[in-house]
Design a protein around this nucleic acid. Structure first.
Length: 973
RNA sequence: GCCCCGAUAGCCCAACUGGCAGAGGCGUUCGGCUCAAACCCGAUCCAGUGUGGGUUCGAAUCCCACUCGGGGCACCA
């Protein structure tokens, strides 16, 4: 007999059949209770979180009690998509709600609210399809999502919710942008935390230039500040800004019509959204100088309590590597600086490679030098032709193709010849796309003997391989990249021979520095953050351009710059592989908006607005600050509130970094949002706007809920809810009689395995749904959804209900008696264990302890009132509605939200007797009941005398006895 | 290719610093309740911890190698 995999909801006797048990805890009763309590919480402002001062008070109109510990709890806020929620979405929100309710009952002042991350591509694409303004659909989606989430009974402060598209919010996003724009990074300035290097106002840079304490950059058109005209000065300053416009190679995605950040391009060179090919193009775009913070972003990971995995991912992304820069002279007068992590192998450099975009290639010799190897020319008559052809060829390559070609070495001789600064040997300069312009200096010295990529290139182009590190292996077969002692590395005043790698590096770097041809340096994989997008649905830049085409910040009183109406919301898109296309942002279509007359201090003038918008990440970079006081709008964040909720040492969890006490979200944001947000926070820290060193003190990654899906023999997904288990089918499952195969995957429409929270509310109620999600397993683990198992959580709540309320009469059945010793012990053990598990966020095991206690109560003839009340409090964080209902039926007028979470009495935790395991040779042979405080010799004597031990020892003497009183004795014979 | 994480009963998952493999839930089967059924109550079934080795009095737990699954990075000099 086949059984359905997704059965009917638990039958609802009260609703369906007669009314024999009108007070059974069914889905219908749960709904009544839940809706009633949700309304009540709203009416009373139960979860209004008080600030220590200001208008945000608690439900009784009071500010925060300074004696209470503050606890700032956050979810990664949702994107309000129109697709609707499935059962996987609320997992993290339920988890944080449990933490928040628990911490609140432990006496903390808990800040927990939920905003909406509402700019972005899906809303824009929907608007393009429907012609409706994205604001209309986005706000409608937010309303739908609010309703769905409210039904869960989340204890959020509703006054602190907001969306990143709100004008009030956009204003401050733009304001922060302008702070970054008005900043430069002073490597030498000392920070409040004692470290070196921090952002400072541009005004302070001007002061330094005016005073002559800082010299102009080498490429400035004058030698002193005074000689520069105002445009020249602005150019110098603009080049220092932390937000700057520059023409650099960026990721251009014709299929989306926009440029993308490195972080938004997948490993195989496609756009994360839409999966279109991405090309490297030189375009003039906004960048954020996140690289200035590379060291701090890497180092401060040690200060925060994050999953090791995420810290590792951030470290890898930042990719710090230490090495040296070495200047090579090029015959004919040029110079090229290379970066290497192995300066100790400098004597083994037999050629040089520059990236195809390298400026050295803007001029190349007219003719091949004498003796040029035939294989080096690529068949061209001159270096000019060869380099031009190679540059064109690589420019047309998409990142996908580059990826596919990785490992295969292409390149061409440039006609340039460099001089190895150590031994003065002449070495040819090649260009090849395995050297990237964006990393290091875009040029390398090639040491084929000790680098596999260089070795591959040398083999293909028949270049010499010179061994300079002694070690095993044959460099005719492959490069030797291991450690070893330097050899063949001496000339004139320098010898590395005999030195180990570390020592050789130190020696050569000192020599390079002494001779002014190089220096020790650090390079990062991290690039500056490409910050503009050619899209409509994002924050406009609060910047205009004058006749010199230089950016000018708008004054604060002109913020927010709001989005103009445009005839068409989409950027111009192109064939996905149209390399030569140009970005064309939609904001440019409103000429009236673009050209604006303003008086910015020197009379009314016409300016041109920036037609780009900020990337979706901008809004999520600082939203945690907005929860602190979303109403207040004269500062980005009140310093007093920031210190109270986030400051270093604001509670015993905050550590030296400070920050949000607990931040829960998916691991998919490990490098994007979490890195950008940390960067913005550090700029705000440098500018004195926040006191915490880091935005998020503790990070927790919740797992994903996935579900089984089924496909028919053509591979088409079939509705999972209609599939039945069928032992007779070859695959074990059938759908409408035909065998289907099972697979495990994401919940969604495409796999036809969608299960929605709404279905769960209807079939079981929110408390059962919450309890089930929390009991499935550890919060950080991904697990399969199983609708069939939800009933177990409902049964638990029904038993809890029945322990207090008579299902037939609705009367409270608890009695005012003293609990017996056994019940007291069960109760206090449960309290103790539940608290331990709650503190460790192990909700699945906490629930298991609750079930044990509840099952004990079920076995009693009558349930003592005090015990029932305690059990209700214990369960309240998980199933708040039924808990409130029972608490009220037990005679309490106030919500239990602020009741103290029960504390165990240690007197009931000590056992009268302990079972001691008697092992012989490590195998259990007997058990004896002993007093917990039994002395070791007495225990050993009892164990040796036990029947099981005697039998197992078989008359042999005990050679050794290991005793761990009172629980274990192991006898070795 | 490199780096992380994981593997315990038919399924989801427990097991404190190494110390009785089972807390809880789903499922199975059986009994009680019932005129009968559902619900409920009680019981029951089921693994020696992915594989192979090592350390130890004792290993799910520590070490080594491997297999499978999930994730991250990948021409970064």
């Amino acid at each position: 007999m086949p059984t359905p995999t997704s059965p009917e909801p638990a039958s609802d006797a009260a609703a369906e059949g007669g009314n024999e048990v009108p007070f059974r805890y069914t889905a219908a009763l749960a709904e009544q209770i839940e809706l009633r309590w949700q309304d009540r919480w709203d009416e009373l402002g139960t979860f209004h979180t008080p600030n220590p001062s200001g208008p945000l008070t608690d439900g009784n109109g009071a500010n925060a009690d300074p004696a209470k510990r503050s606890f700032f709890l956050m979810d990664m806020f949702p994107y309000p998509s129109g697709a609707g929620l499935h059962v996987g979405h609320p997992l993290g929100y339920i988890g944080t709600d449990v933490v928040g309710r628990y911490r609140r009952m432990c006496g903390d002042n808990v800040l927990h609210a939920l905003g909406y991350d509402a700019f972005g591509l899906p809303a824009e694409q929907y608007a393009v399809q429907t012609g409706q303004h994205p604001r209309v659909t986005t706000e409608a989606n937010i309303e739908i999502m609010r309703r769905q989430l409210r039904r869960l009974g989340l204890a959020h402060d509703p006054r602190r919710s907001f969306a990143t598209i709100d004008a009030d919010y956009v204003r401050w996003t733009q304001w922060i942008f302008l702070q970054i724009f008005d900043s430069w990074y002073d490597e030498d300035a000392v920070r409040p935390d004692g470290g070196r290097g921090r952002a400072r106002r541009i005004g302070e840079l001007v002061e330094q230039y005016e005073a002559g304490t800082r010299s102009l950059p080498a490429d400035a058109p004058a030698t002193s500040w005074a000689e520069l005209d105002s445009v020249g000065r602005r150019r110098v300053l603009d080049a220092h800004r932390l937000a700057y416009v520059s023409e650099t190679p960026v990721n251009w995605c014709p299929g989306l019509g926009t440029v993308l950040a490195n972080e938004e391009v997948t490993v195989d060179g496609r756009s994360e959204r839409g999966n279109f090919p991405v090309f490297k193009r030189n375009l003039r775009q906004w960048q954020m100088r996140i690289t200035a913070y590379a060291d701090r972003l890497a180092d401060d990971l040690d200060l925060i309590d994050w999953p090791e995995k995420v810290r590792l991912m951030q470290r890898n992304w930042i990719g710090r590597s230490e090495g040296a820069e070495v200047r090579f002279e090029i015959i004919g007068g040029d110079e090229v600086t290379v970066f290497t992590t192995r300066p100790d192998t400098l004597f083994g450099a037999t050629f040089m490679v520059v990236a195809p975009e390298h400026p050295l290639l803007d001029e190349v010799p007219a003719q091949w030098p004498d003796g040029t190897h035939g294989a080096w020319t690529g068949g061209h008559d001159s270096p000019l032709a060869a380099v031009a052809a190679y540059r064109a060829q690589t420019a047309a390559k998409s990142a996908v193709e580059r990826q596919a070609d990785a490992g295969r070495k292409t390149g061409v001789f440039t006609g340039h010849v460099a001089i190895n600064p150590t031994n003065h040997e002449l070495i040819p300069v090649f260009t090849a796309d395995y050297v990237l312009m964006g990393y290091g200096t875009g040029a390398i010295m090639a040491v084929p003997a000790h680098d596999q990529r260089d070795w591959d290139f040398a083999r293909d182009f028949e270049l010499p391989v010179v061994r300079v590190i002694d070690g095993p292996g044959d460099i005719e077969v492959e490069a030797y990249t291991g450690d070893g002692v330097a050899m063949s590395s001496s000339h004139d005043d320098l010898s590395l021979d005999g030195l180990a790698v570390t020592e050789a590096k130190r020696t050569i770097i000192a020599w390079l520095e002494e001779h002014g041809i190089g220096r020790g340096t650090v390079t990062y994989r991290l690039r500056d953050w490409l910050f503009s997008r050619q899209r409509y649905w994002g924050e406009p830049f609060p910047v205009v351009y004058d006749e010199h085409d230089l950016p000018i910040a708008l004054p604060d009183e002109l913020l927010p710059v709001e989005l103009p109406e445009v005839p068409d919301y989409s950027p111009r898109t192109y064939e996905a592989d149209d390399v030569h296309s140009e970005p064309e942002p939609p904001l440019g279509r409103n000429e009236e908006w673009v050209n604006v007359t303003l008086d910015l201090g020197d009379g009314p003038k016409t300016y041109r607005r920036d037609t780009n918008t900020m990337p979706n990440w901008a809004g999520s970079c600082w939203y945690y600050l907005n929860y602190l006081d979303p109403g207040r709008r004269d500062v980005v964040v009140d310093p007093e509130l920031e210190r109270y909720w986030m400051g270093a040492g604001h509670d015993d969890l905050a550590g030296v970094s400070g920050g949000v006490d607990l931040y829960v979200g998916g691991v998919e944001h490990a490098v994007l949002h979490l890195l950008y947000s940390r960067f913005w926070h550090k700029v705000l820290y440098d500018l004195g706007r926040v006191s915490a060193v880091e935005p998020f003190r503790t990070l927790f990654n919740q797992g994903y809920i996935q579900a089984f899906a089924y496909r028919d023999d053509r591979g088409q997904p079939v509705p999972a809810a209609e599939v039945v288990e069928d032992a007779e089918a070859s695959t074990g499952f059938t759908w409408q009689g035909q065998p289907v195969t099972q697979e495990y995957g994401k919940i969604g429409k495409s796999l036809k395995n969608m299960v929605t929270p709404d279905e769960m509310y209807a079939a079981y109620g929110a408390d059962t749904f919450r309890l089930y999600e929390m009991s499935m397993g550890p919060l950080d683990l991904s697990r399969p959804w199983d609708t069939r198992a939800v009933v177990g959580s409902q049964r638990f709540l029904q038993r809890l209900w029945r322990n207090v309320v008579d299902e037939t009469t609705g009367e409270v059945t608890v009695v005012d008696v003293e609990p017996d010793q056994e019940t007291l012990r069960a109760l206090h053990r449960a309290i103790d264990e539940v608290r331990t598990e709650m503190d460790g966020m192990r909700f699945n095991t906490a629930i298991a302890r609750l079930i044990v206690l509840n099952n004990h109560l079920t076995g009693l003839a009558e349930v003592p009132r005090s015990v029932a009340a305690t059990a209700v409090l214990l369960a309240a964080p998980f199933a708040p509605h039924i808990a409130e209902e029972l608490w009220s039926r037990l005679g309490h007028e106030q919500s239990l939200a602020y009741e103290s979470y029960p504390v165990a009495d240690p007197a009931y935790l000590v056992e009268e007797t302990v079972t001691c395991v008697v092992q012989v040779q490590g195998k259990v042979r007997d058990r004896i009941e002993v007093a917990p405080g039994i002395a070791e010799d007495e225990l050993v004597a009892l164990a040796l005398a036990s029947a099981g031990a005697q039998r197992a020892m078989d008359g042999k003497p005990a050679r050794r006895v290991i005793a761990r009183p009172p629980g274990l004795v192991n006898i070795v014979v």
